[in-house]
Amino acid sequence: MKPEWNQWAQEAKQQFPEANSSLLPLLYRIQHAEGWLSDETIRDVASLLGLTTQYVESVASFYSLFYRQKVGRNVVHVCVGLSCALAGSDSVMEHLEHKLGIREGQTTADGEYTLLEAECLAACDLAPVIQRNLRFVGHVDPENVGRVLSDDGKEVNS
C-alpha cells in the first residue's frame, strides 16, 4: 500500500459519503497511479474502505475499464461497433496488430502498448474511431495506423 492511498480513500469517502459510492472513484485513482489493479491492490482497497476483498474483486472484475492484468503504458481501444465496422474497423485492428506485432488482448514486449477491442464508443460520427488512453482519435486510416500511436501531445478531443 502506498502512503498516500489512505488520504485518497478519505477524500473519496468525503465526496461520495453514502453506501460504497467511494469504491469506483478510489479504484480509478489508484489505477491511474499504478497502471493496473493487482491482487494486492484489491486487498488494500478493501481494507481502506472496510469491505471484503471478495466484494472489491467482484466489483472491479465487472467493469471493463478496471484492469486486473498489467497493461502497457498506452492502452489502445479499437471500437468494433457496427458503425465503425461499416467504416473499416476490422482493417484498423488488423493493421494495428501487424504494426505492434501482437494480437488483440495482448501487450507489446516493451510494455508500451496494450491493444483491446471496445464496444461502441458513442463516437460513430468519427468512425472508424479508436481511443488511446481514453482519448479519441477519429477517422483512422487503416493504412496509416502509425499516426494514432505516434502523435504524442496531439490527442484529439472529439
Partner: peptide, 15 residues
C-alpha cells in the same frame, strides 16, 4: 452512460 450502438448525441452535449 451513452453506449447504445449508433448513438452519440449526449457526448456532444457534455463535451
Amino acid at each position: 452512460d451513452e453506449a447504445e450502438p449508433g448513438t452519440f448525441k449526449d457526448r456532444e452535449i457534455i463535451e
